[in-house]
């Protein structure tokens, strides 16, 4: 694939922007969590692009790939904890609408 790295970075930036927009606009907690997953995926794509950018034919660079493995691991942990929080919230409030969970905002 002879795609320049800038296109990969642009794709990652667009995905991250869409994730940020969904995180800020949507009020369903599960969709907000899905938007966070989108942002983490964009970060993964950026890390992998960095690894591709810094490796040549003879000199391999896999640091970005290893970091993206850690990002995938953190994303899995975050999804598990976030979904458990959503379950606990639904048990308490019978809704997952984030606007209805503003008790601490005064």
């Amino acid at each position: 694939m002879n795609v320049p790295n800038e296109h990969l970075l642009i794709l990652a930036a667009l995905l991250f922007g869409i994730g940020v927009a969904g995180f800020l606009i949507r009020r369903n907690a599960i969709i907000v969590l899905a938007s966070i997953e989108l942002m983490l995926n964009a970060a993964n794509l950026t890390l992998i692009t960095g690894s591709r950018m810094h490796s040549t034919a003879g000199n391999l660079n896999l640091d970005g790939a290893v970091f993206s493995i850690f990002v995938i691991l953190v994303a899995a942990a975050e999804a598990a904890v976030g979904l458990a929080l959503i379950i606990a919230l639904y048990r308490l409030k019978q809704t997952v609408d984030l606007d209805s969970v503003s008790d601490l905002s005064g």
Binding site: V3, L8, E37, N41, I48, T49, I72, L73, A79
Partner: peptide, 27 residues
Amino acid sequence: GIYLLAGFQFMAAAQLLVYAGAIMVLF
């Protein structure tokens, strides 16, 4: 698929197994 095209086969496999498999099942 993009990871696979960029030459990172293991990352593509991890993406499919962990993200599209485990995390999606959780969601």
